[in-house]
């Protein structure tokens, strides 16, 4: 056996493997991690009337002293500002509230749909799946847009409610928080349906029969067996709705009104309208800190689901 050659082949394989790992790795480092560190850095800077509109900027030409000088000028002033100005913490609270309530409504609407799908005749199920996935592939913006016409003063919803005699005069729904709730539920409910449907179809029907055999009524069997065993899907669905809803920008700006405070919209306006980059950076950092808890919980749930599958 030619040891020398084998060594070279091994080296070549290592090189290949190295580049296979390095290309996506470097890409993500450069375009995901570094940008985020930049946001973090800017959040510690001060606003300035310059280009770029913040100080300090890192002058690498000044060497180590310049770096030390740069570090000494960074502070948590922006974060203190966020804490004292009630616009920000109200926005955070209201975002969490809106996301949370929307998530619960999504669950209340999504679970029966998923349950109905899972219990529908088997030959219907691919079609029903398709019907849930179709809006998911359709432009998000267009789906939000389609609600504007429905929810406006002269819109279909008001016309319908007046026609059935529930109200006498049209309600103002568009440009209120109600519209934001409807928008989030409408656009995100497929994210709730799909994971719940997935766990429900995996549910072994003989478990429900066993529960009935042991003395449960149908309803009792539903609460004692179906619900606990679809817990992982429910949790996954809730996070899939809650996490993006929390940072939502399009829905509050198109459907919400002046009363609607959502942190995604605040961040966008802080950056583009006020050109206060450091504060926008700080808003982003806090938003991420808030999101870390649900994200970690979500990951743990996914892991559990995967373990349960194997």
């Amino acid at each position: 056996m030619d040891r020398h050659r084998r060594h070279r082949v091994g080296k070549l394989m290592n090189l290949r493997r190295f580049s296979l790992i390095a290309v996506p790795y470097v890409w993500l480092l450069g375009l995901f991690l570094v940008p985020f560190l930049i946001v973090f850095k800017i959040s510690l800077s001060d606003i300035a009337l310059s280009i770029p509109p913040y100080t300090p900027t890192l002058e690498l030409s000044e060497g180590w002293a310049g770096f030390r000088d740069f570090l000494s000028q960074l502070d948590f002033e922006n974060f203190e500002f966020l804490a004292t100005d009630d616009l920000y913490w109200k926005s955070y609270l209201s975002s969490v509230q809106i996301a949370l309530i929307s998530t619960l409504i999504c669950l209340a609407i999504g679970f029966p749909i998923a349950y109905g799908m899972a219990n529908a005749p088997r030959e219907w199920q691919p079609t029903l799946m398709l019907l849930v996935i179709l809006p998911f592939w359709t432009s998000f913006l267009i789906r939000v847009y389609s609600l504007i016409g429905i929810l406006s003063q002269e819109g279909m919803l008001n016309q319908f409610l007046m026609w059935i005699g529930l109200i006498n005069a049209p309600l103002t729904i568009l440009n209120t928080n109600i519209a934001v709730y409807i928008g989030i539920v409408y656009t995100y409910v497929p994210f709730m349906i799909l994971p719940i449907y997935a766990t429900l179809t995996k549910l072994d029907g003989s478990l429900l029969e066993a529960a009935e055999d042991l003395g449960c009524s149908r309803t009792e069997a539903f609460w004692r067996i179906t619900v606990p065993l679809s817990k992982a899907g429910i949790i996954a669905g809730c996070f899939l709705v809650f996490i993006p809803a929390l940072g939502e920008f399009v829905i509050p700006s198109l459907l919400g009104g002046s009363e609607t405070l959502m942190i995604g919209k605040v961040l966008y306006e802080e950056f583009f309208a006020n050109r206060d980059w450091p504060v926008a950076g700080a808003v982003a950092v806090i938003l991420l800190l808030i999101l870390i808890i649900p994200i970690v919980l979500y990951q743990r749930n996914e892991q559990k689901m995967m373990d349960a599958d194997t």
Binding site: D204, S206, L207, E209, A210, E212, I225, L229
Partner: peptide, 20 residues
Amino acid sequence: IPPNKRSVNMMFQSYALFPH
């Protein structure tokens, strides 16, 4: 008589043990 009211019990082929 519905299954939950019968004094008949069944051992399922898959055992149908409640995993949770």
